[in-house]
Amino acid sequence: RPMADGVEIRAADLFLPGEALLSARGEAQIAALARRFASAPAVEIRSHGADARHERFDEWDLAAARLGAVARALQARGLVRDRLLIRG
């Protein structure tokens, strides 16, 4: 849902259950976000909550791995690393 100057996306819309791998749908959403925020001075990425299916990761590790996956995907689509702020 829209937030002040951004968007909120459920992890289930980006990731495979219990994993930090972006799904095809997630890759498409990240690509759209990268285009939307291409000229933003900074992009903050946050993680809230947990995935009930944490087979490989505990809740903290899963959140951290997913934040890293989103940051790397945004960087791969042209957002400069120095403009990405990750908060877990």
Score class of each variant (00 low, 15 high):
Leu21Asp: 11
Leu22Trp: 11
Ala12Arg: 06
Glu19Pro: 05
Ala31Gln: 06
Asp51Leu: 05
Ala31Ile: 01
Ala64Asn: 11
Ala65Lys: 11
Arg83Cys: 07
Leu85Gln: 06
Ala52Tyr: 06
Ala71Tyr: 07
Phe15Gln: 04
Leu79Ala: 03
Arg81Cys: 12
Ala32Gly: 00
Leu79Asp: 00
Glu8Lys: 12
Leu62Gln: 05
Ser23Ala: 06
Phe57Lys: 02
Arg66Ile: 06
Gln29Asp: 09
Pro2Ile: 14
Glu59Thr: 15
Val43Arg: 00
Ala31Gly: 03
Leu79Phe: 02
Arg10Met: 13
Ala4Tyr: 10
Arg25Phe: 09
Glu59Lys: 13
Arg10Phe: 10
Arg53His: 14
Ala40Ile: 09
Pro17Phe: 07
Ile86Arg: 15
Leu84Ser: 04
Ala65Ile: 12
Arg83Ser: 10
Val80Gln: 09
Gln29His: 09
Leu84Glu: 06
Leu84Met: 08
Pro41Gln: 08
Arg81Gln: 15
Gly78Glu: 03
Ala42Asp: 05
Glu44Trp: 14
Ile30Met: 04
Trp60Leu: 14
Ala52Phe: 08
Phe15Cys: 04
Gly88Met: 13
Phe15Gly: 04
Ala11Gln: 13
Ser39His: 14
Ala38Leu: 06
Glu27Lys: 06
Ala64Leu: 15
Leu33Thr: 01
Val43Met: 00
Ile30Asp: 02
Ala73Pro: 00
Ala32Tyr: 00
Arg46Asn: 07
Arg35Thr: 10
Ile9Gly: 08
Ala4Cys: 10
Pro17Cys: 07
Ala76Met: 04
Leu79Thr: 01
Arg83Lys: 12
Asp82Met: 06
Ala76Leu: 08
Gly78Lys: 00
Val43Leu: 01
Arg87Trp: 11
Arg72Asp: 09
Ala31Tyr: 01
Ala34Met: 00
Gln29Gly: 05
Ala12Ile: 02
Leu67Thr: 08
Arg46Gly: 04
Ala69Ile: 05
Ala69Arg: 09
Leu33Tyr: 01
Leu21Thr: 12
Arg81His: 14
Ala32Ser: 03
Ala52Cys: 11
Gly49Ser: 07
Gln29Cys: 09
Val7Pro: 00
Glu55Trp: 03
Arg36Gly: 10
Leu84Ile: 11
Leu16Cys: 10
Asp13Val: 10
Val70Gly: 01
Ile30Ala: 02
Ala12Val: 05
Gly78Thr: 02
Ser47Val: 12
Gly26Lys: 02
Pro17Lys: 09
Asp51Phe: 02
Leu62Trp: 04
Gly49Ala: 03
Val70Glu: 03
